[in-house]
């Protein structure tokens, strides 16, 4: 499988000159195309900071992050915005749809930024809303949608730009169990059927149970990674 995310020795330190706090401490992370990965850990363990670094929203104090072979730590702020637009899809905890736009317009907005023509946009919107099962809510404003529906629209928006991967920061935190389950079904389906790469932070055990790889962070360090365990098991099986 192709490597999508390749992070080497990345660290992020707050208050470096007074009382240094390592939000992310010497983390190595490799994510391949089609992975469905949960980033777990207690509050303050550095999950969101790590997602911000991988998403190019923040810069590490040490280390490099390669996305599809491009070192995003070397990009200027303006180039990073453009890079995010074309390569990374974001799903936030509190949905963050644009309140004045309809569900359709929220998804279309990203493609308008990408200057995709109207015909292609319409086709993509049709396809995405079918996937998130909200074809009847195209023209509703976010305020008229439930939390779960809003988050599904947010997933559609993240997918609209055909990104290399999707980063989701606690996507089910503000959802009830049924909505969370629906959302996970959609994300899981997109991952299995369309090979879309997901990396999401979560506290939610139901989400962790659905993940095919779980990375645990404590105090900014990776303390466990099920992919490594699997790889070791695979290596052991090979020796036998």
């Amino acid at each position: 499988m192709d490597t999508v995310i390749d992070a080497h020795n990345i660290s992020k330190v707050y208050n470096p000159e007074t009382i240094p706090v390592y939000a992310v401490n010497n983390v190595h992370l490799h994510l391949k195309k089609g992975e469905f990965t949960a980033l777990v850990g207690p509050s303050g363990s550095g999950k969101t900071t790590l997602l911000n670094l991988i998403g190019g929203l923040d810069k590490p104090d040490e280390g490099n992050i390669l996305i599809n072979g491009i070192d995003i730590t070397k990009l200027s702020a303006n180039d990073l915005i453009d890079f995010r637009l074309h390569n990374i899809g974001f799903v936030f905890q509190s949905f963050n749809l644009i309140p004045v736009l309809t569900a359709k317009e929220n998804v279309e907005f990203i493609m308008q930024l990408q200057r995709i023509n109207k015909k292609q946009r319409d086709e993509r919107i049709k396809q995405l809303f079918k996937e998130i099962d909200l074809e009847d809510k195209l023209n509703e404003r976010p305020s008229k949608l439930s939390g779960g529906q809003q988050q599904r629209v947010a997933v559609a928006r993240a997918l609209a730009s055909k990104p290399k991967f999707i980063l989701a920061d606690e996507p089910t935190a503000n959802l009830d169990s049924k909505s969370a389950s629906n959302l996970l079904d959609i994300m899981d389906k997109l991952n299995r059927e369309e090979n879309i790469t997901f990396l999401f932070s979560t506290h939610d055990q139901r989400v962790i149970d659905r993940a095919r790889r779980v990375i645990t962070l404590v105090d900014g360090r990776i303390v466990s990674d099920t992919a490594e365990v699997s790889t070791k098991h695979e290596d052991a099986d090979m020796k036998h």
Binding site: N78, I81, L85, Q114
Partner: peptide
Amino acid sequence: KFEMGMLVAIGMKKKW
């Protein structure tokens, strides 16, 4: 402020 941060995060250039 929050929304503007989000717009820049998802790829809206500051000039737009």
